[in-house]
Design a binder for these strands. Structure first.
Lengths: 195, 195
DNA sequence: ACTCTTCTTGAGCGATCACTCAAAGAATTA
DNA sequence: TAATTCTTTGAGTGATCGCTCAAGAAGAGT
């Protein structure tokens, strides 16, 4: 045997994720990462191979955490409609208001890197589609339970729902008044409940 | 007198705008701009002062063109509702499908530069607010004309409308199938017409 | 205590970044 | 044509980029 690694992979990934989410891919420098991960360049490259690979791993982690959060909402609410509403509200809830709100990292990645780093953008696009597939599954379950009429198209509902989530999270970052974002979320939820 | 400038300011700004819109602020290098504007660095700096100033001028131009387009829709439609619908549809229309769809440059700017270049992000945020003010004005006019009931809050309608426009334009860039974006727009328009 | 293996270190690589400025070039006036 | 005035030119500035690798440090086995 030999010497063990001194860093914790998950801790390091979380630090990289927070940094990449805030600053984006290009604006995050190796210097920034060295400081955030408390690792020297050589160690970072030994552990994560490259800046791009580290970013991909961070984004995958972000996706997993987001999916886990959605599934928590599905599990803790009695109806699918309530779960979808709770998920929307969670983005404008009091709890999140401590750290300044950030738009969805997947969306930010697609917009920033569509031109210069198409690999990253395509990777993020895939996660975006997977997220919508999760929403669609929830809408289909709601129809199977009779919460939503069978005359609706679950795929269309999922697409609109994802558009709303995306717009809400964008507004959450752009808007100066959190109350405005909250009201926007309320109007979106009214639509869902009226199905 | 002396020698005249050999470039056309508007032509150069349009070229810079197209480049910045596609690639974003950070990923657009001076080399890129030199090629697109057919100008050497010295001339660019003499004409536009700095990369950041050139970006701001480009973004202002983008905003002006967007506002002009919206006002064209207002002028060419008989009702406000139709104008707001036509504006939404214009982002997913056949004509635009030649050059690959881009999300709103103002939104892209805010997301990319919120952390590293707050000046740029704040500048874009201001344009975002001005855009919504224009929407609100249209909704108020619709109420004054009796197209929309007075019980609605024009500010809230404008906020939701802008959220829809933003989400639609995002989807337009992210989605692989333009038909999906078109259907999303149709569902958004149904909401507007039901007011 | 000594060897072996692996991890960590950080100075430094070439490339590229935004940007400058002295010199050359072109249009106008005299 | 000569002088004047402004524009254009592009090599070059220092800083920073992502990244490498030889050398040193640290734990495990003997």
């Amino acid at each position: 045997m030999a010497r063990a690694e001194t860093y914790n992979r998950d801790t390091a990934l979380d630090a990289a994720l927070a940094l990449f989410w805030r600053k984006g891919y290009h604006a995050t420098s190796l210097k920034d990462l060295e400081a955030a991960l408390s690792m020297k360049p050589g160690s970072i490259y030994a552990a994560f191979k490259s800046k791009e690979a580290l970013f991909k791993d961070s984004l995958a982690r972000y996706f997993d955490q987001g999916r886990a959060k959605f599934e928590d909402h599905l599990a803790s609410q009695t109806s699918m409609i309530d779960a979808l509403s709770a998920h929307l509200f969670s983005f404008v809830s009091e709890a999140r208001r401590n750290d300044p709100a950030q738009a969805c990292m997947i969306v930010k990645t697609i917009l920033e890197n569509a031109e210069a780093e198409p690999h990253l953008a395509d990777y993020a696009r895939d996660l975006f589609d997977k997220t919508r597939a999760g929403f669609q599954h929830a809408f289909e379950a709601a129809q199977a339970r009779g919460e939503i009429g069978a005359e609706h198209d679950a795929e269309a509902l999922a697409k609109t729902y994802q558009a709303n989530v995306t717009a809400l999270r964008l507004d959450n970052q752009i808007s100066t008044d959190p109350e405005d974002s909250y009201k926007l979320a309320e109007r979106m939820v009214v639509e869902i409940k009226s199905l």
